[in-house]
């Protein structure tokens, strides 16, 4: 077993242990008296944070080793709800809204898209946003997920195409990861992509377009 395989095995094991930990914590949270709920929430928040980063790590590893992520029927509204729920636990001070829309299923890898959107939310929060809005639109067969916030917006160098930011506290790889996820989805010659912009009324907007 070489080093890389060993690392993969350890991370995989970590992931499984995290799953047990999260499940147990959720069970305990239901069982404890209400006065402890806050402490449990704080614990869960960290635990879920670690869990999601481990998932990201594994996914990056798998994308690098050319694993296949198959698309399946998935519901954009469900995807947004999952992202919101996860974010609310991780960032209780931030307001997250979903703009309701078309509820028909799409065909994509739910797991990857959720992770990409979660990265975008994390980016927003870390840039200082206090409100994040998630939305999905369909145009013909194309799905457009967008995350917009009330933060300072993207600096020019990022809008110009630079991807690795040196923001403190995050991995800074969120956009890079999102682009990987977008490109993974394609339909014939059309590939998915990520576009960045700043809202006229202020704040950043990221759109993940899946063909």
């Amino acid at each position: 077993m070489d080093f890389e395989q060993l690392t993969a095995a350890v991370i995989h094991d970590l992931k499984n242990q995290m799953q047990t930990l999260v499940t147990e914590s959720e069970r305990i949270r239901q069982a404890v008296p209400p006065s402890y709920t806050d402490s449990m929430d704080a614990l869960l928040k960290r635990t879920r944070g670690i869990q999601s980063e481990i998932s990201q790590l594994i996914t990056l590893y798998q994308m690098k080793s050319h694993s296949i992520f198959t698309s399946d029927e998935a519901w954009p509204q469900s995807t947004l709800r999952m992202v919101t729920e996860q974010a609310l636990v991780q960032y209780p001070g931030v307001q997250i809204h979903i703009t309701e829309g078309d509820d028909s299923p799409g065909f994509y890898n739910d797991f990857l898209v959720q992770m990409a959107l979660a990265c975008m939310v994390t980016n927003s929060v870390q840039a200082g946003a206090t409100e994040v809005r998630l939305q999905v639109k369909t145009e013909g067969g194309t799905l457009m997920f967008s995350v917009s916030d009330n933060g300072p917006g993207f600096p020019d160098n990022i809008l110009a195409g630079e991807r690795i930011s040196r923001r403190i506290g995050g991995t800074g790889l969120g956009l890079y990861f999102s682009e990987l996820v977008a490109r993974h989805h394609h339909r014939g010659q059309q590939k998915g992509h990520v576009s960045l912009s700043n809202n006229p009324e202020g704040g950043a907007q990221v759109t993940l377009t899946l063909p």
């Binding site: 992931k15 499984n16 995290m18 799953q19 999260v22 499940t23 959720e26 869990q51 998932s55 469900s78 709800r81 999952m82 729920e85």
Partner: peptide
Amino acid sequence: KPYTLSILRE
């Protein structure tokens, strides 16, 4: 896997 209660519910 891994799934949470809300993922399962959804």
